[in-house]
Design a protein around this nucleic acid. Sequence first.
DNA 1: CCGGGTCTGTGCGGCATCGCACCAAGGGGT
DNA 2: ACCCCTTGGTGCGATGCCGCACAGACCCGG
Lengths: 265, 265
Amino acid sequence: MDSGAQRSARSGRKSASGVTSPHPDENHLLAALPVEVRERIFPHLQLYPLPLGKSLYESGASLAHVYFPTNAIVSLLYVMESGASAEISVVGNEGLVGISLFMGGESTPSRAVVQSGGHCYRLSGQRLKEEFNRHGDLLVLMLRYTQALITQMAQTAVCNRHHNIDQQLCRWLLLSLDRLSGNNLVMTQELIANMLGVRREGVTEAAGRLQRLGAIKYRRGNITVLDRPALEKLSCECYSVVKKETDRLLPYPQRTTQRDTLKKG
Amino acid sequence: MDSGAQRSARSGRKSASGVTSPHPDENHLLAALPVEVRERIFPHLQLYPLPLGKSLYESGASLAHVYFPTNAIVSLLYVMESGASAEISVVGNEGLVGISLFMGGESTPSRAVVQSGGHCYRLSGQRLKEEFNRHGDLLVLMLRYTQALITQMAQTAVCNRHHNIDQQLCRWLLLSLDRLSGNNLVMTQELIANMLGVRREGVTEAAGRLQRLGAIKYRRGNITVLDRPALEKLSCECYSVVKKETDRLLPYPQRTTQRDTLKKG
DNA sequence: CCGGGTCTGTGCGGCATCGCACCAAGGGGT
DNA sequence: ACCCCTTGGTGCGATGCCGCACAGACCCGG
């Protein structure tokens, strides 16, 4: 296991064909770690597939790993007794799944579901805690990320209260877009409806309006964003509040420098 | 300043008349600290009044102190550009106001407003960080509390999406009740409406229904809970999810033992 | 005891979303 | 080439909340 993980974590970034292959630095948190921490942690990272719909943890279940997405998106979802659901927040390459591991609770009353397939690097909870308990840069980084996550949750609450489906859809598309490369999203309206906690038909109508405005193009489980500025204009303030706060708390590291450092090490 | 603070923090708990006077242990977090931490921190606690409506921090502003409520309730509130508002979570004697101080962000995009007057103990951010950076019990406790707070925010988001005003009012009354002694709440329907992010009239109608059911008695800014079990039955699952998770993460310490320890120390 | 401000109760039209039912249009598998 | 299942579009009445307007109830201070 570990040998495979090492291979994965250390493998080059681009194949000969130019297709991007995974690298831990695609996750912003991993990329932001200083050299010494990287050297301790990276050997224990496992490349791990995140197929659409996979659950990373269930409500109340103990976690064995934390997950650092690279090109996947994971939704933290609360499913009610009635079966209805609502997305609490979303995690992509800017963050990690499993904060309850280091926050001390070991579990949370929500689920983590892959909303857009891809890969992540996972790390055993034990390894993470070891590093966390050194009380160094990793702790500081994890806590800052957690605060960004808190901001997102708070804003989700506000948005659910005050904004209509059109605005929320825009916010959601933008949040997803920020976590992927390109301007294409592969997801059904049904999925989006579950995330926003609204009817599928509501999403159909909102998406139809956005399409008529030329902001997006919808084609059977495939959304192409044509006019991102339009989406930003149509979105409520919630998107920009979350975006600004995330950028403030987690300034994107100088990745090329980091890469170089890794190579030198 | 410090001398006054010491006097307050060490002062007895009951006056001769039997009226309860403040003591840091009324805050569960402070009460849960082990002796050594208490001895370092308690001398720096300042008894601090929290009159109704006071703002402990504004959106984006840096914090100088953290606040441990004893018999007051503070709402973390987001106020939108339009002026509409929504409560993100509530803090009473189970918690503290100002997590962004130790989470690393120094500020958050929300306000903290006193929703029910009383007192708290405040501690300078510097002192808190000093203790936090010892990476001892205080850190663990703060993080566990933060996770409880996260649960509350998440559940607020869910509740805002899926539950009607009646259910939300019940949830809100119960959350407030848990943070006060007695079964009496002093607050106008207007205030509650601002917290829930709904119309004042909506609260009037919901409260009227609760009153007709005999669950509460409403009298001009004064709510008396007559039948708490009824409220719990009428509330959505959100209340119990938050309650259970808070209890799990922050088991209420044996206060008498703690008190004795303090006296011995 | 009276007046003015605050708080609460009520009615009405409007609107967004819901729940349901159904149809249309892909598009993949055999 | 066909079928079938998934996905997306549409129409309906019902409902819960909003915005507004206004009246009554309470309470404090003069």
